[in-house]
């Protein structure tokens, strides 16, 4: 598939997402799992799947349910895609992936509707929109479609958890500030003045921006420190020599 770009890459890769590492070097199985948590976090680092991250994170419960649903779809479709990767001709690859994903999403949607009708109502169309969440299609393209089942599932679990982490960060910040509650439990008592904006659309943009700013700030500090340390090492070596 060299030289080809999938819609997922084009569509989300426009802002420099590194779509997976590929199977070239041998990686310990733990690495497949852990990288998605933070270092290659699909939302905070790769900036994928921003629509749900912004749209449904106005409460922790919504974020968690959305996270679980996405997790389920991601792991399920990675499993299926990886297992059937030898049978799927290249030409209908994307179509088959979408078919598989859409099936899992439909199942997830029905399950949510049956189990947690209130939250399903609050999530609205965004459960169905998991189909077009670029994290999922992206992982199938970049990983599950070319790796064995075990690694693919680990990767999916890692990425799904990474998505969930991001969702929970967003959901916590927005619910705590916006309603003064966590999972519906009042934290500060009735005297607290909620920042209504946090549960409104602008609050979503601002919260994610602040999370990204924080991430960028940490990265920058780390880079500065690393440079500092390097300079120090060089100085030591020079002195020794």
């Amino acid at each position: 598939m060299s030289g080809e770009v999938s819609p997922a890459d084009l569509h989300c890769g426009a802002h420099g997402a590194s779509a997976g590492v590929g199977p070239r070097r041998a990686v310990p199985p733990g690495e497949d799992l852990v990288k998605g948590f933070w270092r290659e976090n699909p939302v905070l680092v790769q900036l994928l799947g921003l629509c749900p991250t912004l749209a449904v994170t106005n409460s922790v419960a919504n974020s968690a349910v959305m996270g679980i649903a996405t997790f389920f779809v991601l792991v399920g479709s990675s499993l299926l895609v990886s297992a059937s990767r030898r049978f799927i001709p290249n030409e209908v690859r994307i179509t088959s992936y979408i078919l598989i994903i859409a099936t899992f999403v439909s199942i997830a949607e029905m399950a949510l509707q049956a189990l947690v009708p209130d939250i399903h109502k609050a999530l609205g169309a965004f459960v169905a929109l998991i189909v077009v969440n670029c994290i999922i299609l992206g992982r199938q393209e970049a990983f599950a479609g070319r790796n064995p089942v075990g690694r693919s599932v680990l990767d999916a679990v890692g990425m799904g958890s990474g998505f969930m982490i991001a969702m929970l960060i967003m959901g916590s910040v927005r619910e705590v500030l916006g309603s003064g509650t966590f999972l519906g439990v009042s934290l500060f008592g009735p005297g607290f003045e909620p920042w209504v904006i946090m549960v409104l659309p602008p609050g979503g943009f601002f919260t994610l921006a602040f999370v990204l700013l924080t991430v960028a700030w940490f990265k920058r500090r780390k880079a500065l420190k690393a440079r500092e340390a390097e300079r120090h090492d060089v100085a030591v070596v020079e002195r020794a020599a």
């Binding site: 426009a14 802002h15 629509c51």
Partner: peptide, 13 residues
């Protein structure tokens, strides 16, 4: 801006 739909092209294009 209000429903967060189509954010990918919004950020990318």
């Amino acid at each position: 801006l209000m429903l967060f739909l189509g954010l990918c092209p919004f950020l990318g294009v």
